[in-house]
Design a protein around this nucleic acid. Sequence first.
DNA 1: GATGCTTACGATACCCGTAAAGATA
DNA 2: TATCTTTACGGGTATCGTAAGCATC
Lengths: 310, 310
Amino acid sequence: MNLQQLRIVRETVRRQFNLTEVASALCTAQSGVSRHIKDLEDELGVELFTRRGKRLLGLTAPGQELLPIVERLLLDLQNIKRLGEQFAQQDTGHLAIATTHTQARYALPPVVTGFKSHFPRVHLELHQCSPREIVERLRSGEADIGIATEALADEPDLVSFPFYAWRHALIVPEGHPLTAAGPLTLETIAEYPLITYHPGYTGRARIDAAFARAGLAPEIVMSALDADVIKAYVELGLGVGLIAAMAWHPARDAGLRLIEAPDLFETNTARLGLRRGRYLRDYALSFIRACAPELTADRIREAVFPKTAV
Amino acid sequence: MNLQQLRIVRETVRRQFNLTEVASALCTAQSGVSRHIKDLEDELGVELFTRRGKRLLGLTAPGQELLPIVERLLLDLQNIKRLGEQFAQQDTGHLAIATTHTQARYALPPVVTGFKSHFPRVHLELHQCSPREIVERLRSGEADIGIATEALADEPDLVSFPFYAWRHALIVPEGHPLTAAGPLTLETIAEYPLITYHPGYTGRARIDAAFARAGLAPEIVMSALDADVIKAYVELGLGVGLIAAMAWHPARDAGLRLIEAPDLFETNTARLGLRRGRYLRDYALSFIRACAPELTADRIREAVFPKTAV
DNA sequence: GATGCTTACGATACCCGTAAAGATA
DNA sequence: TATCTTTACGGGTATCGTAAGCATC
């Protein structure tokens, strides 16, 4: 048995059993990929992949049991490398953050600025993606840290920590009748065409839930992935907007007015997500600490490597 | 990086940094061991071992952090092999049990008999050893299952389950004055020279604790590793014996009398111990189930591979 | 016919083992 | 001096890549 064989098994599943792709992903020749799979199956005495003729289709029962073990083993292999880098060059390396528009634009800039000055020799990569993609990137190892309001809390192979709490608020064009009305209610909002986030993004579920609980069905004329698009169309008069409150900037958004809606929608919590069992460089822990001071290195390491798991 | 390198790192620590021994343990040449260590250190960019001149002395800080990762990785490698065997030959293989005299002699015979008839093609090895050695054998992978009253419950890298509860009782020669006396007390026992287990064996700690709580200091004239030795010397009249109650057999121990001591000493619990994260063959799970029917395969696997650890 | 997997084959690189030299106790 | 580690060197093997042959879609 051999590490390359295990890498190939993992990659084969990731590439939907297309060995040609596997070979190119691992920078090697297809022939070797085929051989390695065959050799491994021979050594274990078990077929790992189901086949139709020569094509691979999926995992057999033993293959399915094997996969998580292989994944963890390769994770540990990465951890060993990372540990080497950690000691070899304390403050040099990469840090990949996967995050949503909202966090990248409104929550992270001060953290990133501080980080860059503290760790000038760390190459920081910020990848903007959807919450689902963030989870995938954490899982595959492309990202060290994921930051989003959605999706991070419910994955068994991730750990997540609260970053900060935020609320939705209404934005309307300057001079809109709602700026003169009394305290907001869901009913009054629902009288106007609505522009807000796409489902699965930035607390949209909370918005839908609030209206549903109130027995209201507002007309959502547009859904967008980020507040900037929403603001643009509110400004055009397409409707009123529901966005994360921190996305409104008094000076920059001069043509718009923000109306707080403190109790209409449930609080959202942006979270920091990490892959369980993945070794984190010290500067990654510093980044997290800069987001949430209560997250000490010890607390994070204990969550990522629970003592009981050894 | 390479599996052999990692095996060498682990073995080097196990063999107290004597590379010659490491080589022979891994069936290879010293020269290769040296070079592999050097290569790995070069690749990671970090010294893993402290040295005086050419001799290795111990682990550096990075080496200490590395070791548990390597151990887990190699455990997973074993798990992969075991998983192959599991599917390739369902009911054929090895099962190594490490246990104490008391369990081997009095608790396990019926379980072993049943197991042998159910799994005739499994090679069952029973190793009798001390509680500390059981822990070591589980840790090193020499044993699949450990069974003892002592030591198993407190190791963070092991999981343990209760097997059965038992109590100490007194044995005396036939016709001894205590056979005629009323209910036993610690005070009356302490009037006689005592023969019992060696510290660290078969609930000896409970015996000491009971006497200490009562402010008594009995004269222990002999301590032995097993009940058979104790019984022999009790029969010779050296003193009265305190043994595990199940070690007394009315027919075989005709010259002795057992006097129950239900409330004098705390109950002991024999436990089954497993290495966390180690894959178990189905027949190993069956063995455990035969010991304690409430320990289903699912319950054991969940304890050995907690879901949260992935 | 296009894509994808297997097998064959030659070159390369890696790993191992022997042996000699140097260090340590 | 005996034990242990490193370095050098040669042989063997495993792995890789190219390329051809086949199966699948």
